[in-house]
Computed example of a mutant assay.
Amino acid sequence: MLEDGEKRAVGSRVVKVLAHRRDDRGMSLEPFASRCVRRGEVHELVTTDHDDTAAGARIDRVAFLGFVEIGNAGVVDRGDEVWCDGELVGTVLGFDACHHPNHYNILISTPVPRTGPELGLRPEVEVVFSPAVVPAR
């Protein structure tokens, strides 16, 4: 049974750039492969080179990109591509809810954790969560 159909991209804009990193952060991956987001919500973007998607997986090596304000409601799924100012940054690994309901940490899988300044992020830069392109069968 096919569970997922097409969806629209979720657009957002940077509201605060973050420049720090940690090797002992201790985030815990939520068991959910997707989260609904509403227009106007603010969520934190965190890059990591961890690749374990098991519920409760510990995420230590991280670099913080910043906070984004969601521009249109939608669904952010594990595996979505994350584009910052037109540049592919990585894919959504999952979510950490240690600050929820204030905000989610959206964990982004990258070869090397990178901070906001390392990606050239600035306030108002567009960040898009786009469905990954699945090859035709």
Score class of each variant (00 low, 15 high):
79 G>I: 07
79 G>N: 02
98 C>I: 12
108 I>V: 10
27 M>T: 12
91 T>F: 06
89 V>G: 00
7 K>L: 06
95 F>I: 07
130 S>Y: 10
79 G>A: 00
127 V>R: 10
4 D>H: 11
64 F>G: 00
81 E>R: 13
90 G>S: 03
82 V>T: 03
37 V>C: 04
86 G>F: 01
90 G>I: 04
73 A>R: 10
84 C>A: 15
130 S>K: 14
88 L>G: 04
110 T>F: 00
70 I>G: 07
62 V>I: 15
1 M>L: 08
46 V>W: 07
22 R>E: 13
110 T>Y: 00
130 S>T: 11
17 V>T: 07
53 T>W: 08
53 T>P: 04
19 A>H: 11
81 E>N: 09
106 I>H: 00
114 R>Y: 00
2 L>P: 15
121 L>D: 08
110 T>S: 04
101 P>S: 10
79 G>P: 02
35 R>A: 09
2 L>W: 00
45 L>K: 04
124 E>L: 14
34 S>V: 03
16 K>T: 13
35 R>S: 09
29 L>T: 07
96 D>Q: 05
44 E>K: 11
130 S>C: 06
110 T>V: 10
54 A>I: 07
58 R>M: 07
42 V>D: 02
114 R>F: 05
12 S>N: 01
89 V>K: 00
76 V>A: 04
56 G>F: 06
6 E>S: 14
66 G>H: 07
38 R>S: 15
89 V>R: 00
4 D>T: 14
126 E>V: 06
63 A>I: 04
57 A>G: 03
116 G>S: 03
31 P>Q: 10
11 G>S: 15
128 V>P: 03
66 G>L: 06
98 C>R: 13
39 R>K: 14
58 R>K: 11
124 E>D: 12
68 V>Q: 02
126 E>Y: 01
129 F>P: 06
63 A>T: 03
49 D>S: 15
12 S>Q: 00
1 M>Y: 09
25 R>S: 12
113 P>F: 00
131 P>Q: 05
67 F>Q: 13
133 V>F: 13
26 G>D: 00
131 P>C: 06
96 D>G: 13
117 P>C: 06
77 D>F: 04
112 V>L: 08
104 Y>D: 09
115 T>Q: 03
103 H>G: 04
111 P>G: 14
87 E>W: 11
10 V>Y: 02
109 S>L: 11
65 L>M: 12
137 R>V: 13
7 K>A: 06
68 V>L: 08
66 G>S: 10
134 V>T: 15
43 H>V: 14
42 V>Q: 10
42 V>Y: 05
109 S>Y: 08
123 P>F: 08
46 V>K: 02
11 G>C: 04
93 L>E: 03
118 E>C: 12
15 V>A: 05
29 L>P: 08
111 P>A: 12
59 I>L: 02
105 N>V: 02
26 G>T: 04
73 A>E: 12
70 I>F: 09
27 M>A: 14
117 P>G: 08
47 T>A: 07
90 G>Y: 03
72 N>S: 11
104 Y>N: 08
20 H>D: 14
